[in-house]
Design a protein around this nucleic acid. Structure first.
Lengths: 333, 333
DNA sequence: CTGAAAGCGCTAACAC
DNA sequence: GTGTTAGCGCTTTCAG
């Protein structure tokens, strides 16, 4: 069906190797020979077969594998964008898959990507054991982790957000506005970022001599509906919180819905910026960060590893920024 | 570095072919032989090389190429998600790239994907000439287009949204609420969806005997700022529109900003749903559609083509749905 | 400058 | 049940 170099060679009346030289822009081909070859190439519609190319010479496949939770989620799609930008610069393709936070699927994806001989792996790891990766890493597949670190045993680079610092700055902002009864909404404690952000919340309170009141902390909600219900419960307490810190954008939206529904002016600061946060009835104060930058940085580290650079495992911490919009500045009631 | 089947065979004291049989779950291997082979596999950390596998026998690479404008844009990332869901069911990998609406980059991407011998191609085409694809298609690479059709000469399946019908329903909704001076904001006329939506606007007015007033039509703005400026201009007219139809989500946001800034209650219906549309100060009435479904349908069509099904080119039209939320129901002033 | 031969890691087609 | 041989489409020697 598809013509091969042999076919082109036959058509042009030269040897296979000469075609190879022309196709790869090697030197040492007379212009008129090259001309003949190029004519044959377009006459036959020849396309070099990169699969065969990668096979011979243990060549790189010029591809990297990306495992994220879900591309449809803006956080991950921005990571993917950052990765793609760097990949493009290095003439690499990105082969990606969604784990949907399922460890079995994640493992299957990584295994399949290794079977396809991707030159490197970029992974947002789920809460699971990643030791199965060790043989792959030893076998020479570079890997960089994003957003959550793998276990200690895995010696690989990782790019994280400053979760603790970001959460602390959010809660300190609320304290600065006079709040002392501040609720904390965080995702499932199995998730690294949820634990870290909760830790930032604790640290901020402690630093200001405010005891942590566990009845104001809700760990577990991980969607808008769950956060809305949890917030409604908090607002219905005898002594309700005057402010809420929400650990991610879905939790922020849920909290917002509950606060609006209750007709309160409870202050709110959320982790993660989101589109239209400034256009809502109450514009939302957030701890912003830059997922695309995370993707870029991770991809850059990976490329360096792929080029054989041999540093000790890096741990990059990306900064956050508090964006003040209104919801975080309401005074305590 | 990485062990091959030969190495495994040597280690297990069997022939290469026996290893191949075990690795591929073929029948006709004694359990104890299989056992030995499996031990050698884990001892050496062997991973079958899918590159070599695809080469032999003109085998499929079990991958498909996806070319979209930008993964970071929720519209495209949802398409990507739909594609990935179907790919997963068929045990296919997705190799994707962003064209950023640059025809040269799009062409480069498609070419490279063909060189990697993807089994099929899923493309959101930019406004450009796609005839260079014809040889690839003839050479057996299946292709399905999404969101915008390629030129007539390309005989391939395409999955579209009902742009005309959706726009018409939006404008008829405004007419039903008593509006007659309805503005139209649409993207660059080079873009298929922009033209089609503008056509739906015209059709709705004509169907109700309302003459099209070109001074109320703004073609060209393609970001929030541009739409905001265009809308501000419209509102400043001596005889301003009482309602606005915005041709996509960025234009809707821009219009909304301008209307809020002017302190008006101008009615607004937008094409494309977006997150938090219901949480804004004025919840936004929209023409919703389902990008993930577009990705799924396109991927399904592609898989059927890849399986050799030979129907005439299909043209799938996905329905839209008007979601009433408030902004589209204000009466004329 | 150009070409012939070997072989990347695997599977298909046949032996035994 | 198991092994041997050929060869996928290309690049890499090494000769001419």
């Amino acid at each position: 069906m598809r013509p091969t170099m042999r076919d082109v060679a036959r058509h042009a009346g030269v040897s296979l190797k000469t075609v190879s030289r022309v196709v790869n822009g090697e030197v040492g081909v007379r212009p008129d020979t090259a001309e003949k070859v190029n004519e044959a190439i377009s006459a036959l519609g020849f396309r070099r077969n990169d699969i065969a190319r990668a096979l011979r010479g243990g060549k790189r496949t010029r591809s990297l594998g990306l495992v994220i939770k879900d591309v449809a989620n803006p956080f991950y799609s921005q990571i993917a964008r950052g990765v793609e930008e760097v990949a493009r610069l290095h003439d690499l393709f990105v082969i990606s898959g969604c784990s949907d936070e399922d460890p079995a699927r994640e493992r299957h994806l990584i295994r399949s990507l290794c079977e396809r001989r991707v030159d490197g792996l970029l992974v947002v790891p789920s809460a699971a054991d990643h030791r199965y990766l060790i043989p792959e890493l030893n076998m020479g597949t570079a890997a960089v982790f994003m957003d959550r670190p793998p276990e200690e045993a895995i010696r690989a680079d990782v790019v994280l957000i400053d979760n603790v610092g970001g959460a602390r700055s959010a809660v300190e902002h609320l304290i600065a506005h006079g709040h002392r009864r501040i609720a904390c909404l965080a995702d499932l404690p199995g998730i690294f970022t949820a634990r870290e952000r909760r830790r930032g919340y604790d640290e901020a309170l402690q630093a200001h001599g405010i005891p942590v009141d566990e009845s104001l902390v809700r760990l577990g909600p991980h969607d808008v509906a769950g956060a809305e219900a949890a917030t409604a419960e908090l607002l219905a307490l005898g002594d309700p919180p005057t402010a809420v810190f929400a650990g991610n954008n879905r939790l922020t939206i849920g909290a917002l819905r509950a606060i609006q529904a209750a007709g309160r002016t409870t202050a709110l600061v959320g982790f993660d910026d989101f589109e239209l946060a400034d256009m809502l009835a109450t514009p939302v104060t957030v701890v912003a960060h830059y997922p695309a930058e995370m993707g870029r940085r991770a991809a850059e580290l990976l490329c360096r590893r792929m080029d054989g650079e041999d540093l000790p495992p890096q741990r990059v911490l990306l900064p956050t920024r508090l964006i003040v919009r209104g919801s975080g500045e309401s005074p305590p009631i």
